[in-house]
Write a protein that binds this DNA or RNA. Structure first.
Lengths: 162, 162
DNA sequence: ATATGTGGTTTCATATTGCAACTAAATGCA
DNA sequence: TGCATTTAGTTGCAATATGAAACCACATAT
């Protein structure tokens, strides 16, 4: 459910989740990235209720993540496509997939494979890096709010919080 | 809401969302990454209802994302900390933050800055790369389901689906 | 033209969330 | 020690979202 909107929060994560944080949103986006375009593709593949799908698709369209366009194969039915903005969520989707592969892999089930479409080579794990391109260890990462926001000192750093 | 569990789905993204897909989960994890440890930190900072927070924290603990441990500062109250598994969600959190910064930045509001804790240098955008380390363009990315799973041919590739 | 498929909308039962009030233990202060 | 306040919840109730099934209009197939 959601009766409270994250959009007023001065946090880019909260505002992002306001767009894609609903239960089905990211799965719809994933399916779109894997080639789903039509209402029935999403509906059959996800097993989502039709009214919920309608609702989620409209939210995504309103948020500029997807767009409803005339089919390019002659069909009179419209297609749902990702916008540039939506496709730009790929790192999020891939990061989710890779975390799942690592920590909650389904033994007897297949998982999502992300590759270079040309060569078929698996991509490396999406991971934070410095501008120079070198990987950053988790404990080396700093997260804070930009300008105006209060630094939020919760407790004295007595020792490394790791 | 959610009455349907994603966990049976043979998809790493769905199973990941089963752990962190609830409305507040990722924001709680974000706060934990920024140093929140105590119940009140999360509650005050997020403005989440206490019963909901209790519920979400328990879910995260059950999912192995967070753990409840005795405080190390002498307090009798327990602290909520990320597990290794939870901290490993950093790429997801960072990817969400960076997408939000790019597409839904709050003009008069601060956003999340991710840096090298030592130098303060901003990290580059989290982005898919080949094993060699070079960036992959969005249209070069292939996503498919591993072994067993049906390839899900939805339509003939008439032209590039971009 | 007639049947089926596609893309919805509507209605109802159920599950979650938010809010406010209440509680019990921990902490702060005199 | 003695009492007020804070913290970490729990409980009950109202509001809202979801799922399932029925229903409907338009497209497509035969």
């Amino acid at each position: 459910m959601k009766t409270k909107s994250f959009s007023e929060m001065q946090c880019s994560i909260a505002r992002t989740l306001d767009h894609v944080g609903s239960w089905w949103s990211l799965l719809i986006i994933r399916d779109a990235m894997m080639g789903a375009r039509r209402f029935k593709h999403f509906q059959e593949n996800l097993g989502i209720a039709k009214n919920t799908l309608t609702s989620r698709l409209n939210d995504l369209i309103e948020g500029g993540i997807m767009k409803k366009v005339p089919a390019d194969d002659g069909s009179a039915y419209d297609e749902y496509r990702l916008t540039d903005r939506g496709r730009d969520l790929s790192p999020v989707i891939i990061a989710l997939a890779q975390w799942g592969d690592k920590w909650v892999a389904h033994e007897q089930g297949p998982s999502t494979v992300i590759t270079d479409k040309e060569t078929g080579e698996r991509l490396s794990r999406v991971w934070p890096r410095r501008e120079a391109g070198d990987l950053v260890e988790l404990h080396e990462i700093g997260m804070r709010r930009a300008n105006g926001a209060p630094p939020k000192i919760w407790h004295q750093e007595k020792e490394d919080q790791t």
